[in-house]
Amino acid sequence: MAKHYAMVIQLKKCLGCQACTVACKFENKVPDGQYRTKSPAIGPSGTYPNVKVFFEKQACQMCQDAPCVKVCPTTASHYNKDGLVLIDSHKCVGCKYCMTACPYDARFINKNTGTADKCTFCYDTRLTKGEKPACVTTCVGGALLFGDANDPQSEVARYMATHRTEVRKAQFGTRPSVHYDYEGVK
């Protein structure tokens, strides 16, 4: 059975500490001032002293119906054999059409290569070696689960079977592979 890599983010456990943000920068040699993932604060909301705030890790949502792949004029953006949305930087000309199409603002033009760039779930550097993405392994709060959603025994599959998770901007029908559990934060 084909793999379907997926991530679950338990927002309750995210501390907004940005360890993932920095780990990703070095793992993927992301240029200064650019990010493949970031975790901004959402809030604070409410009124003193009943206040809430949470952090939402944002990156490529690895859509299974990805608007970026659909619009890419050169097929640089594509699905790989494991269902991931990846960018073939040899084919990319940097037209930014994918960036206009991505509802998650997950893409940017890499300052050094001039091509579109985004989270790959660390496919080349870690997944193919059996390691989890750098953000997952460095997560201080333990908020990130990762694995093959097609394997019912995987951490993500078991979690999703027993918890209510959501995808961001479901109205666009992009079918993301990154799932958010907002329990305890909203």
């Binding site: 659909k70 619009v71 890419c72 004029p73 050169t74 097929t75 640089a76 084919k91 990319c92 000309v93 940097g94 037209c95 930014k96 059409y97 033009i109 890499n110 290569t113 001039g114 091509t115 579109a116």
Partner: peptide
Amino acid sequence: FDLGRPLSFWKLIFNVNFGSVMSIGV
């Protein structure tokens, strides 16, 4: 000029995506 890699514009002609409006537009 607006491309991230202006000198690679020719790749638009050799890599075609019929599902992409831009590709057809090219």
